[in-house]
Design a protein around this nucleic acid. Structure first.
Lengths: 163, 163
DNA sequence: GGCATATTCATGCAAATGCATCAAGCTTGA
DNA sequence: TCAAGCTTGATGCATTTGCATGAATATGCC
């Protein structure tokens, strides 16, 4: 993981510093640690993975009834085919419905079912507890805020390349 | 991604605060943005994925000639079967060799080949440039250091569960 | 209107991952 | 010494992901 050798190249400054490299590896590891922990907690509790929760929550959120797949795709940063099949699975489990879209016959409207709402509500306490263990128990509020702020700078305006 | 509803539960404090939740989602997104960017740059340059680089670098690093798979496994935080097959692929491409282990007939010693060393050296500039774009161009040194510090607190001593 | 192009979503096929389990060799301890 | 248990690594099978492409409809332009 640790990348040495950055020192070898002389002036040509397409080379990040040592600090950047450490930050990078920690970003990967911290995310891995946190996410795999949360996923494990969910699985051990017999609950579906995070991605199901994300979809269901997104569907419940807006006031509108249902979302188009391409909207979900943007919210959740999933590839188009990935979302398509994720919806297949969640639908097969009965937590959402795909309805034909009135305004656009190519498309569809994805709607959460009653069972989907119940599932989401049932998952939340476990999810929340895992999240607290992974984040809130390890950083005080100030630290959380700063971390969030800095991470934000790594996100802005890059996602817009897809497709 | 955004999780509301944490406000609903009254006193029962297994619930992370709003700040923790925002930090969590940003951790996922920042890592996703950064890693997928770097992977894309590598792929577009016709280079193998990050995991290959990690393995090769790890093999090159120590003074000892070669590493045991279980050592790599720990360094790289890969599941046992994941590493086993990753090694299959890298070996098939000619960048490493698996030799029988003298001290332990169950095991093997994984050694990087000449071609493997060349590959790693060849990949580095592209990797470094991508890393710089993803991290160093977005955070100044101070910020990088703080971010690394905070991320470190999310990592410590949790990984030790595997197998 | 009618053709070219773009958008929306699905899907066949290959590659990678996860899970469970296995075989082989090591270690311990009575 | 040898049985019980542990460690090391591989692998069959199911699931998931990635990639390329396709089918259907919409949109824009002439």
């Amino acid at each position: 993981m640790h990348l040495h050798e950055y020192a070898k190249v002389p002036a040509m400054k397409n080379i990040p510093g040592e600090t950047a490299i450490r930050t990078w590896t920690r970003l990967l590891r911290a995310q891995h640690a946190a996410q795999s922990y949360v996923e494990k907690v969910l699985k051990d509790a017999g609950l579906p993975p995070l991605s199901w929760y994300d979809v269901l929550l997104e569907l419940e959120r807006g006031d509108r009834a249902g979302l188009r797949p391409f909207e979900l795709e943007r919210q959740l940063l999933l590839p188009q085919y990935g979302l398509s099949r994720l919806l297949d699975r969640i639908e097969a489990a009965g937590y959402l419905e795909r309805r034909p879209c009135e305004e656009d016959a190519r498309g569809q409207v994805v709607v959460i079912t009653k069972a989907g709402q119940q599932l989401r509500r049932k998952v939340w306490p476990t999810y929340a507890a895992a999240l607290k263990t992974a984040i809130a128990d390890r950083l005080n509020l100030k630290e959380q805020a700063i971390l969030g702020e800095l991470l934000g700078k790594l996100i802005d305006e890059r996602q817009a390349l897809s497709r």
